[in-house]
Design a protein around this nucleic acid. Structure first.
Lengths: 104, 104
DNA sequence: CGGATCATTCAGTTGACACTTACGTAAGTA
DNA sequence: TACTTACGTAAGTGTCAACTGAATGATCCG
């Protein structure tokens, strides 16, 4: 989760992730959308893969990348719950349960 | 939004944000939870404030900080919308998160 | 005023990281 | 086999950011 947040802090990587969000692409294809070298893109892809945000599929000399949406969903879930683990949240949850009980 | 993501990439800042999530705290109070100098904490608070993630309230020589939950909510919405081109993808991500939650 | 307290800011160091160029590797093709 | 394609990895460079320690506000109180 730490790695995922760090990976997303870089604007270029967010852009890459968007490119492979709805279709898989090769590294050269991805690199063609930017003005940096293919090498730089390859390194970014390594970071994204390490963070679990993209999956890699090899086919001959090609390597196709695609966003791992489940991981993105996990990240969103983490952001939702990371800060709400305190007593206040427990109280809120207890109150919600109480309301639910009274309703049935 | 860019600044907020960058701010959250730093683990220490996430911890700070958690400290001031449900109650406001002074800088010394916050710093006492870490092994770095007050100066470092003050700089972190500056980044968080610049990113709009915390608000500052002055009272005499004290400065009290508190998390800006609305900004956190905006960030979450951004993460939802940035990669999801439509409702269908949003639904897919939600379902994936649900499956993951049920698994743990 | 002068000191004490709470906190930011400045200067400088160190390490991380995004980038480039150069090279290495694996798989297909003539 | 030699050549090309599609990549990753290594090494080096410049920039940025997290940190420390010292200096600098800002406010209150005797």
């Amino acid at each position: 989760m730490d790695a995922a947040l760090k990976a997303l802090a870089e604007p270029r990587r967010r852009e890459i992730l968007r490119l492979v969000w709805s279709e898989e692409r090769g590294a050269t294809d991805i690199a063609s959308h930017f003005r940096v070298t293919r090498s730089a893109i390859s390194q970014h892809l390594g970071v994204l893969r390490e963070a679990g945000l993209v999956t890699e599929r090899r086919e001959g000399t090609h390597r196709y990348y695609r966003a791992d949406r489940a991981e993105m969903a996990r990240l969103r879930d983490f952001l939702d719950r990371y800060w709400t683990g305190g007593l206040e949240q427990l109280r809120d949850a207890a109150e919600a349960a109480q309301r639910e009980k009274g309703r049935s």
